[in-house]
Amino acid sequence: MTDPAVLVVRPALSDAAMAELFAAAWGGSGDTRWAPILARSLTWLAAYREGRLVGFVNVVGDGGRHAFVLDTTVHPDEQRGGLGTRLVRAAAGQARAADVEWLHVDYEAHLTGFYTRCGFRPTAAGLLNLR
């Protein structure tokens, strides 16, 4: 059995490593600059296997009772093995430790099962596209 990926809280992340992960998982160029995003985050977690970034999740907060899970991403070679669930549950633990009361996540309908396994329950919400 393969050893589980190692989860690291708030590691330094290069734009190149993040671009590689996001391109593999989502396609596209992955030209996001992560330092300004992470500077505003409550916390983030990364997953590594043999030194390679294979997973990521970001948690942003309002400075009070609410925080949001963003950018949950797992490399395709690692999907369907529980890594995403581990990342989201660890992020929830970090948010709890920061005294967050409500952890929110938005997702597409086909991800309902995944987020239910992570402990979330569906709620009605609104979304406004500003672009």
Rank of each mutant, 00 (worst) to 15 (best):
M1T: 08
M1P: 14
M1V: 09
T2F: 04
D3M: 06
D3A: 14
P4L: 02
P4W: 03
A5F: 02
A5G: 05
L7P: 15
V8A: 08
V8Q: 04
V9C: 02
R10W: 00
A12Y: 01
D15T: 04
D15C: 03
D15N: 15
A17I: 11
A19T: 08
A19Y: 08
E20K: 05
E20D: 15
L21M: 07
L21H: 00
F22S: 11
A24V: 10
W26K: 07
S29A: 09
G30I: 13
G30V: 15
D31F: 09
D31G: 07
T32V: 09
T32P: 10
T32G: 10
W34P: 14
L38H: 06
L38W: 01
A39G: 10
S41V: 14
L42M: 05
L42D: 11
T43C: 05
L45F: 09
L45T: 14
A47T: 06
Y48P: 14
Y48F: 12
Y48A: 15
R49Y: 13
E50S: 12
G51C: 04
R52D: 04
L53P: 08
L53F: 02
V54Q: 03
V54Y: 01
V54C: 02
G55H: 07
F56G: 06
V57E: 03
N58T: 09
V59I: 03
V60C: 15
G61V: 01
G61L: 04
D62V: 10
G64T: 07
H66N: 11
V69W: 05
V69L: 05
V69Y: 04
L70I: 12
T72L: 15
T72G: 12
T73L: 01
V74W: 11
H75E: 01
E78S: 09
E78L: 13
E78P: 15
Q79V: 06
Q79G: 01
R80S: 02
G81I: 00
G82M: 00
G82E: 01
G82R: 02
T85G: 02
T85L: 12
V88G: 10
A90E: 13
A90K: 12
A91L: 02
A92Y: 10
A92Q: 12
G93V: 07
G93D: 06
G93M: 07
G93A: 11
R96Y: 03
A97E: 04
A98S: 13
A98T: 06
V100D: 05
V100H: 11
V100I: 05
E101K: 13
L103I: 03
Y107H: 05
E108G: 13
H110W: 09
L111V: 13
T112V: 03
T112M: 00
T112C: 00
F114I: 09
F114L: 03
T116M: 00
T116F: 09
R117T: 07
F120N: 06
F120C: 03
R121A: 06
P122K: 04
P122I: 08
A124I: 03
A125I: 06
L127K: 10
L128R: 07
L128P: 15
N129T: 09
N129F: 12
L130S: 04
L130V: 01
R131M: 15
R131H: 14
